[in-house]
Nucleic acid binder design. Structure first.
Lengths: 216, 216
DNA sequence: ACTTGCAAAACTGTCAACAGTTGACGAAAT
DNA sequence: ATTTCGTCAACTGTTGACAGTTTTGCAAGT
């Protein structure tokens, strides 16, 4: 038997707006009008309001009586996002090292092997909503068995990161280095070394931060 | 010049619900009816819906077509909350050690001196919405100059922590130990030692975690 | 050219009402 | 006594309308 999904208009609208923002359809700083968006999606303003409120502070900023805008993303905001990421993903790696099952560890390693061969045939710089990198990091967040961290990474960090990724090129050779760092993280996880796993993850994210900031 | 405050009914309702939950007026697990709450506050359901949605995942959990309930708080949830707290506040302390002004450091130390004398006259276990402990920790979050961390600590962590604090007694002598740990954190901040500050903060929160869990 | 004042349009905050769903209660059937 | 079924009240999701505010476009004045 399969679950019946009766999704609400508000959730639908939420997904659409996230998609529109993280895919670049809505520019950073652009104003989003409730009424206009409601007409565009063919529903009333209620569900739209709900969706936009759920995004407040994450992907849009709101000014009372004025409206909501897609968040702007400067160097400082990006740096701070990486600080938050370092803290949370570092802890996630630590917890994963303590909690993860052997089965999961093997599947994570298999994922890295796939990514490894993807990089070989490296021509394809096609856009994909969820990158290999995000899959790896999110998998570790899940393995931490800490719902708070998992939820916040998903809702706060990764959404914002996609906006940035969309508008900036990556340093040449960064993918290779990142993959090596991923392998180092897996190695620490396999050794069930919480300190090592956390430090490897944090070093990886610091490196990603410096690389991203260097491209601005 | 002073800012004109034009607070909306939704924000008002939001504050009221937070107050009701963190003060214990609404029990954990209790269902909150939009219609009932709207009648109670004398406004329509729109602003209420908005307020409850902003609390989703933080202080209330929502089931589609059923309604919202005040979150339940078990041992595991509490442990995970402390993991998140350790990660974020550790990073906050690190950033504070790097960024904070000397003026702020002196005011933080003065705050600790006040807390110190408060504990002397320790009879007053009166309930206060914001405890001395929370003031100390939030001040460091502000000094980190990282808006993400500040916002998430406020909206995600401290609210939930208040629910727990309300319903559990503290270990005898914990206040004294906590104060000593606070002084250690300040010491590391004064020395502008990021590693030391982060580790002191994390050790402090681990100790608070163990103490809290021991009381269940 | 630049500001000032004003009127119209557009938009947000709020409300009241409607439709469909859920959960509870009690009657009927086994 | 227990289960099944149908009814009903309460509630959530959604809508359209109203009021007040902000923005915009334009005209008049400096």
């Amino acid at each position: 038997m399969e679950q019946i999904k009766s999704t609400s208009l508000a959730s639908e609208a939420f997904d659409r707006v996230v998609e529109a923002i993280t895919s670049g359809e809505f520019e950073p700083g652009q104003k989003i009008s409730e009424a206009h968006l409601a007409r565009q999606l063919g529903i009333s303003r209620g569900p739209i309001r709900e969706a936009l409120h759920r995004l407040e502070g994450r992907l849009v900023s709101r000014v009372p009586r004025i409206g909501v805008r897609v968040i702007q993303f400067g160097e400082e905001e990006l740096r701070q996002l990486f600080y938050l990421r370092e803290a949370m993903e570092g802890m996630a790696a630590r917890l994963a090292a303590e909690n993860a099952s052997d089965k999961w560890l093997r599947s994570l390693e298999a994922m890295l092997q796939r990514h490894s061969s993807e990089i070989e045939g490296a021509g394809k710089r096609v856009y994909r909503q969820r990158t290999s990198d995000e899959d790896f990091h999110f998998s570790i967040a899940q393995a931490s068995k800490c719902e708070n961290i998992e939820r916040l990474l998903l809702n706060e960090v990764y959404y914002q990161l996609r906006i940035h990724r969309l508008r900036s090129s990556r340093q040449p050779g960064r993918a290779d280095k990142a993959l090596k760092e991923h392998f180092e993280i897996v190695e620490q996880l396999k050794q069930r070394n919480p300190d090592g796993a956390e430090e490897a993850m944090r070093a990886h994210i610091r490196a990603a931060r410096e690389s991203s900031l260097a491209m601005l």
